[in-house]
């Protein structure tokens, strides 16, 4: 389970996150929706232990990821930018990460082979990743996030850089993972992705969670027809009040 309570993060006088609280329940897909620079990535980085919060807690299965190495085995993380060890081949990278996450060698080889084939990247696995396109790197990142079959997934803009066919494919995979009771927290600024996947949506604006609920609840609350309209309405309202 993913649980965030009263989370604050400041850089000097700039408040990146302001008192955010949310939780992701078992088998739920929670989508963080927000404009560019709203604080989605900061929140995710705190959750994965890459950044320390100024105050509040961000816990995965009851622990802060930075302080407990075993907890880091219990979530898969896909960062927003595909920054990879470009001098390694895709296969070398996935084998290293999988082994360090504790996946046994024979299982790891099978998984890398299966997933890379399904995501149509198997032919490129022996090439250094610096020759990969952004979409190919995204696929490697996705495989890396699920390589050890973790119970929690934290995905930062997972469909960015992918063509429509693979966007669809990744979305159905995420849905499928949730059906296996994985807890999924993902961020996006694409409302159609949220519309297709979200069990619950949290809208972040200027570091604050300004609206939260199921897509249906949000549509009813705002009296609009689509998540895009909800998003625009909520963000405009929040900006007026700030």
């Amino acid at each position: 389970m993913i649980e965030i309570k009263n989370l604050n993060k400041s850089y000097g006088t700039f408040e990146a996150l302001r008192g955010i609280s949310l939780s992701v329940d078992k088998g739920e897909i929670y989508v963080l929706l927000g404009s560019n620079g709203a604080g989605k990535t900061t929140l995710i980085k705190i959750l994965t232990g890459l950044i320390t919060p100024t105050s509040g807690t961000a816990l995965v299965d009851g622990y802060f990821a930075r302080d407990n190495k075993n907890i880091r085995r219990k979530f898969g993380y896909m960062p927003e930018h595909p920054d990879l060890y470009e001098r390694l081949t895709g296969e070398e990278f996935l084998n290293m990460m999988g082994s360090l996450k504790g996946v046994k060698e024979n299982i790891l080889t099978q998984r890398v082979r299966k997933l890379s084939k399904e995501l149509e990247i198997a032919d490129y696995l022996n090439m250094e990743m610096r020759s990969y396109s952004k979409g190919m790197k995204q696929k490697i990142l996705f495989i890396n996030a699920i390589i050890n079959d973790p119970p929690n997934l934290i995905l930062d803009e997972p469909t960015s850089g992918l063509d429509p066919r693979f966007t669809q494919d990744i979305k159905s995979r995420i849905k499928n993972l949730a059906s296996y009771k994985k807890n999924i927290l993902m961020s996006t600024h694409i409302t159609s992705v949220a519309e297709d996947l979200a069990d619950r949506v949290g809208i972040i604006e200027k570091g604050k969670l300004v609206q939260e609920g199921t897509p249906q609840e949000l549509l009813e609350k705002t009296g609009t027809n689509s998540l895009e309209d909800v998003f625009i309405e909520v963000v405009n309202h929040a900006r007026k009040n700030s």
Binding site: L50, L84, Y85, M97
Partner: peptide, 14 residues
């Protein structure tokens, strides 16, 4: 390692 440090920091390793 720069921006790639996330790989090592999110690993379940000391």
């Amino acid at each position: 390692d720069g921006r790639r440090l996330w790989c090592l920091r999110t690993l379940p390793t000391y």
